[in-house]
Design a protein around this nucleic acid. Structure first.
Lengths: 154, 154
DNA sequence: CTATTATCCATAAAATTTACGGTTTTTCGG
DNA sequence: CCGAAAAACCGTAAATTTTATGGATAATAG
C-alpha cells in the first residue's frame, strides 16, 4: 500500500490514542496479528508522522491549573508583521496552552490555564493586554468540562 | 511527604508530559536517581491520579481532520434538565472532541473536528442544530494552529 | 510468468519493567 | 535530643517487552 492506512493501522491508532501503554503483545492479540507485525507497523506509523508523539496527560486540578479560560483576541490591524509578532509573543507565555488564528469576528482564540482567577487576572493585565496592537480581549471561563478527548474516532 | 510533589516528581511529570516514551533509565539519568526509584515514583504518580493516562497524539491532517471549529452554543433555558440533556447528547457525537460549559455570553464551547467544511455543515445541520433547546450556534473556524500544547509548564 | 516488493511471522538477543529486600534518610512523638 | 516508625532510595535478579534478523508467503508490476 503506497500511502494509506489499512484496517490494522487504524486499529493500532485507535488503541494507542486511548492508551499508549498497551504492549505490542496486547495489541497483537486484539488485532489478530503477530507481535513483530505490530512492532513494524507502529514504527512505520511514527516514521510517517501519523503518531506525532506519546505523552502523559495530567490531572490539571492536581497540579494547580483549576482555571481554564478561552480568550478571544482582536488585533488593531492584520499586517503580516502584526500577526506574526502576536503569534510569537503570545506563544512564549507559559499560561497559553493553545493559540489558534480564526475566521470570523475575532482574530485569535487562546486557551489559558492558570491556578485561579487572581492568577488569570495577573496574566491578563500584565502580559496579554500589554502586547502591542491588541484592540480587545474577551475572556470566558470554563465552569465544567463535559467532554475532553484527545482521541479522534477512526 | 504527605500529599505534595517533590522536585523528583515534578521532573518526572515535566518529562513525561513531553515524551512518555522515555525509559525509566533515561529519566533516572536526567534526574540523578536510580532506575528503581523512578519506577516507584511513576507508579505512585499514576496511582494517585496525577498521570491520568498516556496517549498517542496523531497528526490530524494525516487522518482527515483538517477542519477544526469552535462552536459557541446558547440554550433557551438553564434548567438542570436542559443542561444535562444537552451535555449528554452532544458528547455522543464523534465530531465533538471537547465540550465546556462556560461563564458569559454563551453556555457552551465545543471543539469540533471534521474533514472539511462540507462535513462540518452536515454535522451542524443534521446533528448539532437539531438538539432540543438550542437558541443559537456561532461557529468559528481555525485558520492556523500557532501553539498547541498538552504539557503544563511545571 | 517472473521478478520485485511488501507483508507477515517465529525466533533470539538486547533492553526494559517489575518485584524484592535491605540500607539510608526523614519524620515525629515522647 | 532520642529512638522508633515511616518513607525514600537503590542494587540485583526475574519476568516481560522491545528490537533485530531472516525467511516464508502474498501481492504487484513489468
Amino acid at each position: 500500500m503506497k500511502n494509506g492506512l489499512d484496517e490494522t493501522d487504524m486499529g493500532i491508532l485507535r488503541l494507542l490514542q486511548k492508551n499508549a501503554e498497551l504492549t505490542n503483545k496486547e495489541i497483537a492479540v486484539q488485532l489478530h496479528k503477530a507481535v513483530a507485525t505490530i512492532h513494524d507497523r507502529v514504527r512505520r506509523l511514527k516514521e510517517d508522522g501519523y503518531i506525532k508523539r506519546v505523552v502523559a496527560i495530567l490531572d490539571r486540578k492536581l497540579i494547580d491549573r483549576s482555571l481554564i479560560a478561552f480568550s478571544h483576541v482582536l488585533l488593531s490591524d492584520h499586517t503580516a508583521e502584526t500577526l506574526h509578532n502576536f503569534e510569537t509573543e503570545v506563544a512564549k507565555f507559559p499560561e497559553v496552552m493553545e493559540c489558534f488564528q480564526m475566521t470570523g469576528q475575532f482574530d485569535f482564540i487562546l486557551r489559558i490555564a492558570t491556578s485561579d482567577m487572581e492568577t488569570y487576572h495577573d496574566f491578563y493585565r500584565n502580559k496579554l493586554a500589554r502586547l502591542p496592537n491588541i484592540t480587545t480581549v474577551q475572556s470566558f471561563f470554563v465552569l465544567s468540562e463535559t467532554k475532553s478527548d484527545t482521541a479522534y474516532p477512526l
